[in-house]
Design a protein around this nucleic acid. Structure first.
Length: 980
RNA sequence: GCCUUGGUGGCGGAAUAGGUAGACGCGCAGGACUUAAAAUCCUGUUUCCAGCAAUGGAAGUACGGGUUCGAUUCCCGUCUGAGGCACCA
């Protein structure tokens, strides 16, 4: 009876399905535990070996918790809206709903193959109208809400209009426009449109303007991902930033709470740090600089600074090139220059603008602002290093105290005022936050802390500034000019957006019911003027009440609240019943990649807080504990292909030849081989660059040009190309010539990258499962290393894990004689091996150290095999202990041992300390920190006795060389050190 | 560029609160079983030096410093891989 994993796993899966063992009820006497995976986007490439890493970890945890007596909710679903499906639709004409359905079916099959304990009756899909009905509903709640800063929470917009009726907005500053002021009389005088415009500035979901990548040639808006090296990824057309009306979520109002409640979360410090850096709270002042426009009107530039203490060091000001004042203040003779510069900046991404700090660019507006304290004239520049979205989009530049300001001043020869005395050398800015301010009138001689206070007080006194807290966090853009996303439940009446649940829409036209379904389309072409494809469907856009919003919601809309839907997934009256939400409450463990650190994890925190504020749920943080799994990267393979002009056949060169022959001074005999092949096939040397702008050729020796071309990793064994498989993969290469190494091998180049279909480095878990079984696959993924560390996929070593499972099987069954478990009494050594393992597995699972758990199982099985143990009293608990890791094997053993029910409901074996305690310890004995020998002592030995015995030992005496020991260190249970 | 994170044998990794560096597995080498192979089992395997050998000594956790009786672990600096940087999900 051998370990027939195919048979065993099939049998176990059938049993679990038949008995619906993973179905979870919303009530139980047991304590609840909610364990959630970040749900996947079902891509066309299918699940790859990187996806299950986190799923296996959470599955182990969920199964362990269940064995420990918890009612465990462990659901799975699909983040099914997204750009790739739409791209694919554009290319192939297949409807995204169809391809998505197909992809989900494939994912589901692959997930089932691995043996997860998901309750699939709770599956959610964000693209399902029954699901996005509630995404739209939540959007409406946000649209109908505002953030009450005084109360520190979101409230219905109705309560805001009540206040406006009574007092205007005197006590409720407007987050969208801090300068907006009106009293109750004015409010009542406002037209419907004016009132709604004002309310828009308060709403949590609101409309504003933002820049998008616009591609004239494609007639469409592009995602950041679709813009590569400043041109469109498809076609390589030029792109530029374009301002468009967009929906936003006012997440900035939640900045302080998002920051504050990080403290109560059991997340890694690094994750919290990333979030808190992203929110980027900084304390400082807003300072107002007055100036005259060319037509002699007065205006102001507001700047935010964290260093008001350096106000006397201001030598110039810089506006973001997109700043609204640029047009207003630029003098006529600078107009042309400024126009050119603004145009240049439009082609630059924010990333480029932030990262290329060594390259200083900018342009003078011709305008001068008046320094509020010195009354001196300060020139106003624009530069790409100032971003419009941060602070006020303008800065006061202090070159003696800020690196970038310093570089800018040097580059444009702007005179620098020194306010740091000797500490500013003239070579480099003094950006340290310690020391004394000098050359600064009343601030001279003060510390930076005191000067900051004094400067703010003075500015406040003369009305030129105020204390201010700034956040780096920006409001979240919430619309996409795309088809494959949630439609907005919004209708424009006379260009005023209304929620479909508002009386004007709902009562009069009966258009209020949700969901607003995504209409079927034949074409995915963008609409006019950068609008999405929905704008093309007139009979959908036009309603009796007005025109529908044609944008759709972004990817994170559906994923911001999905954890709530799993609690009550089929509820058609509410997003989830309050009873279910109160029962399951927060997610106890959330598992996913760090790539979501500041996107998804921040948005879902905000949505949770908003739903909490509005009274729909009873907690304001979604994920109590977070585990970040590392990425399993792909290991891509490349070949070098000759691309000289006119060449009629394909020629490939092995990597090592490329490496060697490329170097100067080496014998070029193989180079002549390549030349021979090129010549034979009618090519020319030295003019190999084919047309097309994405060519990335490498000049080899003697005018030979090569290009690095991807090959499917599945056609490569290690680094050696399987030429037959390669030819099969790409029939156009079936007649290709391969210039191999002396040993006849063809070697590929390797690189570690993200695993993705386009990189041909995807490894399908199905293949691994077919070859070794799901249990081996699960344990191997865990055995690869710490869960949170990224590493490239490599199957080397999977044999070892598979051998271990076979070895474990042989404790229970003999290949010839069959079942060999007996009822003999266990020995001390056997009990010790078992209980050591029970202890370590439990501890390891709690601290997510799954790789060491696998090692411990190996150690245990090695020990029991050496002891020749086939005893039920040892092997039955062991079978349960391994269930979280290798559930199929555990189920088979559990059944074979004659148990009723399923192993998934067995109790996790209880650890008994008495079986593992030692009463003595072999101590390492060191002299001056260097271990020289081992000595055994009872754990309760007197330190004095130990010291005597150690010092009396011959070996130690030798190392002491007759000297008197200075110090004797004895750490009970750890070590002994003699210091000379 | 900024934020976060990693770097330990030929390879994946272990060392949980500063206490024997290299557990466990892969690979490799040698051996047993077998007609042979597979499977399985046993032995060895950080490097260098000395020794026939058991063994002994030295160095060693990316690099350079520091704290400590003792540092893979803590601190400072440098190099380098990965993830994110707001419309990929």
């Amino acid at each position: 009876m051998e370990y027939n994993f195919t048979e065993i796993e099939k049998k176990a899966k059938e049993k679990w399905a038949k008995e619906a063992v993973y179905k979870v009820a919303n009530e139980s006497d047991k304590p609840k535990c909610y364990i959630l995976d970040m749900f996947p986007y079902p891509s066309g490439a299918g699940l790859h070996v990187g996806h299950p890493l986190g799923y296996i970890a959470s599955d182990i945890y969920a199964r362990y918790k269940r064995l420990c007596g918890y009612n465990v909710l462990h659901p799975m679903g699909f983040d099914a809206f997204g750009l790739p499906a739409e791209q694919y639709a554009i290319e192939t004409g297949q409807h995204p709903a169809v391809t998505t359905e197909k992809n989900i079916a494939r994912y589901r099959e692959q997930l089932d193959n691995i043996g997860f304990c998901y309750d699939w009756s709770r599956e959610v899909r964000t693209s399902d109208p029954k699901y996005y009905k509630w995404t739209q509903w939540i959007f409406l709640q946000l649209f109908h809400s505002w953030y009450d800063r005084a109360a520190g929470k979101a409230r219905p917009i109705k309560e805001l209009t009540d206040v406006f009726e009574k007092d205007g907005n005197a006590n409720i500053p407007c987050p969208g426009d801090e300068t907006l002021r009106f009293d109750s009389i004015k409010w009542k005088d406002f037209s419907e449109k004016e009132q709604r415009d004002v309310l828009m500035q308060y709403r949590l979901a609101y409309q504003g303007y933002a820049q998008v990548w616009w591609c004239e040639a494609l007639g469409t808006v592009l995602a950041n991902d679709e813009v590569v090296n400043g041109v469109s990824e498809r076609g390589g057309y030029p792109v530029e930033r374009k301002n468009m009306r967009q929906w936003f979520l006012r997440i900035t109002e939640y900045a302080e709470r998002l920051l504050g409640s990080l403290a109560k979360l059991d997340w890694s410090e690094s994750m919290k740090e990333m979030q808190s850096n992203w929110i980027g709270k900084s304390v400082g002042a807003e300072v107002r600089f007055g100036l005259f426009t060319p037509d002699a009107k007065t205006t102001f530039i507001n700047v935010f600074t964290t260093r008001p203490d350096t106000i006397f060091g201001v030598d110039f000001m810089v506006l973001a090139p997109e700043h609204a004042l640029v047009d207003v203040i630029t003098t006529p003779d600078q107009k042309e220059e400024i126009g050119k510069y603004v145009q240049y900046v439009k082609s630059r991404s924010e990333r480029e603008r932030m990262s290329e700090v060594k390259q200083v660019t900018g342009c003078f507006t011709g305008a001068y602002a008046v320094h509020p304290l010195t009354r001196k004239n300060v020139p106003v520049w624009i530069s790409e290093y100032v971003l419009v979205g941060y602070g006020t989009g303008a800065i006061m530049a202090v070159p003696s105290g800020d690196e970038r300001d310093h570089a800018f001043a040097k580059h444009f020869n702007i005179p620098i005022t020194n306010i740091f005395g000797d500490r500013y050398t003239g070579e480099e800015a003094y950006s340290s936050k310690t020391g004394i301010i000098e050359n600064s009138e009343f601030l001279t001689g003060m510390s930076i802390v005191d000067a900051t206070e004094a400067a703010i007080n003075k500015l406040q006194f003369i009305g030129a500034g105020t204390r201010k807290i700034n956040y780096r966090l920006r409001d979240a853009g919430f619309s996409r000019q795309r088809y494959w996303g949630e439609p907005f439940p919004v209708i424009y009446v006379d260009d005023i957006p209304y929620g479909t649940d508002e009386p004007i829409i709902h009562n009069e036209h009966k258009l209020g019911s949700l969901p607003v379904e995504l209409p079927y389309v034949e074409s995915y072409k963008p609409g006019p003027e950068g609008q999405g494809p929905l704008a093309n469907i007139d009979d959908w856009v036009e309603t009796d009440a007005g025109e529908r919003e044609t944008n759709t919601m972004p990817g994170y809309a559906g994923s911001s609240w999905y954890f709530l839907r799993y609690m009550d997934p089929h509820n058609d009256a509410e997003f989830a019943s309050r009873k279910a939400v109160d029962y399951w409450n927060q997610v106890d463990l959330y598992v996913g990649g760090t790539e979501h650190a500041v996107g998804h994890l921040l948005y879902s925190r905000m949505w949770t807080k908003a739903l909490y504020d509005l009274g729909y749920i009873g907690f304001d943080e979604p994920f109590k504990r977070l585990l970040n799994q590392g990425m399993i990267q792909g290991s891509s393979r490349f070949v070098y292909k000759v691309v000289n002009k006119g060449i009629s056949a394909e020629v490939f060169v092995s990597k090592d030849i490329f490496d060697e022959q490329g170097k100067e001074g080496r014998n070029g005999s193989l180079t002549s081989d390549i030349k021979y092949f090129i010549k034979k096939n009618g090519g020319n040397f030295g003019e190999g660059i084919p047309s097309g702008n994405n060519y990335n050729g490498i000049f080899f020796r003697h005018g030979i040009i090569l290009t690095k071309t991807r090959v499917d990793v599945n056609t490569v064994d290690g680094l050696e190309l399987n030429i037959e498989a390669f030819k099969k993969w790409r029939p156009e290469y079936s007649n290709a010539t391969f210039i191999k190494e002396d040993n006849g091998k063809f070697i590929c180049e390797a690189e570690v990258e993200k695993m993705s279909k386009s990189k041909y480095n995807v490894v399908n878990p199905d293949d691994i499962v077919a070859q070794y079984g799901a249990d081996t696959f699960r344990m191997y993924e865990m055995f690869l290393g710490p869960i949170d560390i990224s590493k490239p996929w490599d199957t080397k070593g999977i044999e070892g894990v598979h051998r271990f499972l076979k070895k474990m099987w042989r404790l229970y069954a003999d290949e010839q004689t069959g079942w060999i478990v007996n009822d003999d009494a266990a020995t001390d050594a056997e009990l010790k091996a078992l209980h050591k393992t029970i202890k370590k597995i439990g501890d390891d699972i709690e601290r997510f150290s799954f790789n060491t758990s696998v090692s411990q199982f190996m150690i245990c099985v090695n020990e029991l095999a050496t002891l020749g143990c086939h005893k039920r009293s040892i092997l039955e608990p062991l079978a349960v202990a391994i269930c979280p890791f290798a559930p199929h094997l555990a189920e088979e053993l559990w059944q074979q041992l004659g148990n009723k029910g399923s192993v998934v409901d067995a109790p996790f074996p209880k650890y008994e300390e008495r079986y593992v305690t030692d009463n003595s310890k072999k101590y390492p004995v060191a002299v001056n920190g260097k271990t020289r020998m081992e000595m055994e002592f009872p754990l309760d030995a007197e330190p004095v006795i130990i010291e005597q015995q150690v010092l009396a030992d011959e070996t130690i005496k030798k190392w002491l060389e007759g000297k008197e020991p200075k110090k004797f260190i004895y750490v009970k249970g750890k070590m002994i050190n003699v210091v000379v």
